Lab assay of single mutants.
Amino acid sequence: NKEKKVFISLVGSRGLGCSISSGPIQKPGIFISHVKPGSLSAEVGLEIGDQIVEVNGVDFSNLDHKEAVNVLKSSRSLTISIVAAAGRE
């Protein structure tokens, strides 16, 4: 599966507009579980089932849900590497 990078700058009070969840035991990782229509996440093409592999240089493969949320909230400017639809297989 091809990795792609998206860049998101949080402007004003707009949030990311997506929710994440941890994958099942047999498929660990952090996946996008919800994308709000019209949100920044939707605008850059994030979709439900995409796996987040890295954010701002932080490897997401071994993070738990709480740590992942903290990384996503730690910066107003995010570089997110995803594997599209990895969670839909």
Rank of each mutant, 00 (worst) to 15 (best):
D50P: 00
G17Y: 03
G87V: 11
I30D: 00
F31Y: 13
R14S: 10
A86D: 12
R88D: 13
G15L: 06
I30K: 07
A84I: 05
G17N: 03
A86Q: 14
K5E: 06
A42D: 15
K27T: 12
S9P: 15
G38A: 07
S13R: 13
Q51K: 12
I20K: 00
V55W: 00
L63S: 07
L10S: 05
S33Y: 05
V83Q: 10
Q51C: 05
D50Q: 06
N62F: 08
S39H: 00
L16R: 00
E3Y: 15
I20Q: 00
I25F: 09
D50F: 00
I30G: 03
S39E: 03
S22L: 10
I80L: 15
A42W: 12
K66D: 14
K5I: 08
K36R: 13
R76S: 12
V83K: 13
S81A: 08
K66W: 08
V55D: 02
I32M: 03
G49V: 00
P28N: 09
S39Q: 02
F60C: 06
N62D: 13
V44M: 09
F60S: 03
G87M: 10
L40V: 13
I52K: 02
G29K: 02
L78A: 05
G29P: 03
S19K: 12
V55T: 03
P28G: 08
S77N: 15
V71A: 09
T79Y: 09
G29F: 01
L46A: 02
I8S: 10
L16H: 05
I30A: 03
F31D: 02
D59K: 12
F60L: 06
S13A: 12
F60P: 04
V83R: 15
P24L: 07
I80E: 05
G87A: 13
R14Q: 14
G87K: 14
E54R: 12
G87F: 12
E43N: 10
V44Y: 15
L10V: 03
S39C: 00
E54G: 10
N56D: 14
I20V: 11
D59H: 10
E89Q: 11
A84E: 15
I20H: 00
I80K: 05
F7S: 15
S21K: 13
K27H: 14
E89P: 14
E43K: 11
I20D: 04
S33N: 10
I80R: 03
G17K: 00
G23P: 04
K4T: 07
P28E: 06
V35C: 02
L63F: 10
S81M: 08
V83L: 14
G45V: 01
I32L: 05
L40G: 05
V35P: 01
R14G: 13
I80D: 03
I30L: 06
R14H: 10
L16V: 04
E43Y: 05
S21T: 14
V55P: 03
G38R: 09
R14V: 07
L40D: 05
S22C: 13
P24R: 07
V55H: 00
E3M: 14
K27F: 10
G17S: 01
Q51I: 02
A86K: 13
K66R: 14
I8F: 07
G23V: 05
K4G: 04
G15F: 05
E3G: 11
A85E: 10
L16D: 04
S75T: 09
S81V: 11
L72F: 02
E3A: 10
G45D: 03
I32F: 01
E3C: 11
I80T: 04
C18M: 15
K2T: 09
P24C: 11
